[in-house]
Amino acid sequence: MKEVMCMSNIEKLIYPQNGKRKNIFFSGKGGVGKTSIACITAVQTSKKGFKTLLITTDPAAHIGNVLDKPVMDEITKIDGVENLYAVKIDQRKATEEYKNAILEDARKKFDINTVKAMEEELNSPCTEEMAAFQKFIDYACEENFDVIVFDTAPTGHTLRLLELPLDWSKQIQLKAGLTAEISEADKAQKERFDKVIEMMKDKETTTFSFVMYPEKTPIIEAYRASKELETIGIKTQLVVVNMIIPEEQAITPFFKNRRNMQMKYIEEIKERFKEAEILQVPLFEKEIKGLKMLTQISKILFS
């Protein structure tokens, strides 16, 4: 694995350290630009020579549109950038696979009435979340990458995803039945869950970041979420302040007022997230799309 020397604090948060893989999570309110920032970061790490996997856990994600390349529900090499791969979690497909696996195992152990009861129990939003989380775990356990960048769903969904291991015992009981013992496979899966959560708590291995634009609602939502994450041992290390009006563009009263407002909120962000590094991203005049533009922006942000 390539080592990067003389790095800034932000670079240390996105590049692998001491030979360990780096995991970077981007979360935040819907519409703040998480996908664009995740794509920019993934392009940057891959350009630096790190084999990078870009993953989206957001059912509404558009990483394929931002990359201007097709992204499937299987890991795909992104043409045009060496070392860059991407995948999106298809929640519907993941849910069906998860349910079928449980029911197939149940049919070997239980009578038809028990299986029907389990089938009804599995028709719940919790099952969809567990299925998506299991896919997330599968990718998080990938050993073939130097960097994994996670473009996550909006904040509330992300928090629920990360807290799911706390509810794992309920799913274990469902799979095992009322009297059956927990299988070795379930024990192994629980160990994988625990391993990934511990990985996310390791500040050297994992960078958890919130993306926001400098306005009140995204700041409050991200701050509350960061405090909730702290209760399960995950600290926010990076805050990306997106869509800042460039000073040279603030030449009319309207844009001057907007920029002044943004500057005040940036000070509030620094006050609320005292322990995190702040990355400021300007508002670009064009839609962020395509590898050429992503590469240009990554050089601006991480040079």
Rank of each mutant, 00 (worst) to 15 (best):
M1F: 06
M5P: 03
E11I: 08
L13P: 02
I14E: 02
R21L: 01
N23T: 05
F25L: 12
F26D: 03
K29V: 06
G31N: 11
G33I: 03
K34W: 01
T35V: 07
V43P: 02
T45C: 11
S46N: 03
L53A: 05
D58P: 03
A60I: 08
H62K: 12
G64C: 09
P70M: 06
V71M: 07
V71C: 07
D73Q: 11
E74N: 13
I75V: 15
V81R: 03
L84I: 04
A86E: 01
V87K: 08
K88T: 09
D90P: 05
D90H: 11
Q91N: 10
K93A: 13
T95M: 06
I102N: 05
F110A: 06
I112L: 05
I112W: 07
I112M: 09
I112D: 14
N113S: 11
A117C: 09
M118S: 10
E119T: 14
N123A: 01
P125V: 10
P125L: 03
E129T: 08
E143N: 11
I148H: 04
V149W: 01
P154E: 08
H157L: 09
L161N: 05
L164Q: 04
L166H: 12
L166R: 15
D167C: 00
D167N: 12
W168I: 00
I172A: 13
L174K: 15
K175T: 00
T179M: 13
T179I: 15
A180T: 11
A185G: 05
A185F: 08
D186L: 06
E191K: 15
R192P: 03
T207F: 02
M212H: 09
P214M: 07
P214Q: 06
I219W: 06
I220N: 10
Y223N: 13
E228F: 06
E230F: 01
T236Y: 07
L238Q: 08
V240A: 10
V241M: 07
I244Q: 05
I251V: 15
T252C: 14
Q262A: 04
K270S: 06
E275N: 14
A276V: 02
Q280E: 14
V281S: 03
V281W: 02
V281M: 08
F284M: 11
E287L: 04
K292W: 06
K292N: 13
L294G: 02
S298K: 01
L301D: 01
F302W: 03
